[in-house]
Amino acid sequence: MKSWISFLIPEDEYKEKKMLYFFSEGAILLFLFLITMIICNKYFDLNLDMVLMFCIAVFLIYVFGRYILSGIEYTDIATEQAYKKELKVICIKTINFVVIFMLLYFIFTGLPSNQMEWIEILGLLLSLSFLWFFTSFISLKRSYMKNKELL
């Protein structure tokens, strides 16, 4: 069965079914959130920008969170050796992300001119790289635990 959303859906049958569930659940949550916001808007003066940002966040955090926790990302990691190897790959990818982010930042916006700007950019970079590593680590751990039981 083909749809315009097919490019977002994995080839594997089980993963495909799971992802469709996550997207559907996310869409229903988003719908309920929007209804709630319409009701709240009658009684409170809501900031439109904030509400729109929350809408995107609700959908993305839900779908991404479910994907991470479901353990379907690393489907072939079932042994401790493979787990450790993949963990190293995640570390290397995180370091690459930090380096590329810093380089692109310096190229397009130049070097930070004062201490405050340095703190801001380093804080942002550390937060993003921590989030990257942490989500990948949880996903790997969940996948490993799930796959180990299926051997």
Binding site: E11, D12, E13, Y14, K15, I72, T75, D76, A78, S143, K146, N147, E149, L150, L151
Partner: peptide, 21 residues
């Protein structure tokens, strides 16, 4: 053409595959 995880889940009876699979 599926993942190892899918095979494991089918074998354990935790996933009902499509007729095609």
């Amino acid at each position: 053409g599926v993942t190892r995880q899918t095979i494991g889940l089918i074998e354990k009876g935790e996933y009902n595959p499509s007729l095609h699979l």
